[in-house]
């Protein structure tokens, strides 16, 4: 499963892993904004952005091939819009859409692959993301493991009793989804009770977040300068 692999990546040790989550989030945003606002992605411009993304992957000690393959997960979605642009006769725009979405996904994977979710959510929160949103993500991620494990158990149990004709299998799958939904609801109630039993009153406090160090600031400065320089030079070239 994707989230297990990415979680394993996030527990590694590298220059990027050691950086504060907030610094990495700001750099990712800068990269995404620069990429999104580049008007026409020429092959040279695409290569420059790709080089930045690949530098991130290498600095994070992440497996290049596997990450680039996983980033392709966004392509089916953007390909739909790219096809429309192609039909409208705007091939460069179609190519730009694909390249931008793909590189954005790769950059996001660099962030989540070098930052454990707990730190990432805490970083996002201290940058002003709503607590409710980070809580929902946190619970979703926490119980994704439990629910997917339950689903796998149910699948095995079904396999043990033989796989019948196709319509029967669809019915069994539909039933399994309904049972999973009911169980998840029941579990949500159990979790809420466990929270109440430990004094939950509607607000969760978090343990203090870590401080941004000098190395983080230097990294942030260098990263922002690089992205800004790239974006500015591309802008100038475009105007020429």
């Amino acid at each position: 499963m994707h989230h297990v692999v990415i979680e394993n990546w996030s527990r590694g040790a590298s220059l990027l892993h050691a950086r504060d989550a907030r610094v990495k989030v700001i750099l990712l945003l800068a990269f995404l904004v620069a990429l999104a606002t580049t008007p026409r992605l020429t092959p040279a411009a695409s290569a420059c952005y790709a080089a930045l993304a690949i530098a991130g992957i290498l600095l994070g000690g992440l497996p290049l091939g596997s990450l680039l393959l996983r980033a392709a997960i966004v392509l089916p979605f953007t390909a739909t819009f790219a096809v429309f642009s192609l039909i409208a006769g705007d091939a460069p725009r179609a190519a730009g859409l694909l390249v931008k979405s793909y590189l954005s996904a790769a950059a996001v994977l660099v962030l989540v692959g070098t930052t454990p979710l707990a730190k990432l959510l805490r970083g996002l929160e201290s940058l002003g993301a709503p607590r409710l949103l980070t809580l929902v993500v946190q619970f979703l991620y926490r119980y994704l493991f439990v629910i997917s494990e339950q689903a796998q158990h149910m699948r095995l149990a079904a396999l043990c009793r033989g796989s019948g004709p196709r319509p029967l299998r669809f019915r069994a799958a539909a039933g399994a989804i309904a049972v999973l939904f009911a169980r998840s609801h029941q579990r949500a109630e159990g979790i809420h009770q466990a929270m109440l039993a430990r004094g939950f009153s509607g607000r969760t406090e978090l343990l203090s977040s870590t401080r941004i160090g000098l190395r983080d600031l230097l990294f942030l400065g260098a990263g922002l300068s690089l992205v800004l320089a790239l974006r500015t030079s591309l802008g100038v070239l475009w105007n020429l």
């Binding site: 959510l121 119980y143 579990r187 466990a194 430990r198």
Partner: peptide
């Protein structure tokens, strides 16, 4: 699993004291 809902062990154990 119903009781351990925070992302890390220490945060989960600290949930009650913070509340």
């Amino acid at each position: 699993d119903e009781q351990l809902f925070m992302p890390t062990v220490i945060e989960d154990v600290a949930f009650g004291p913070l509340n």
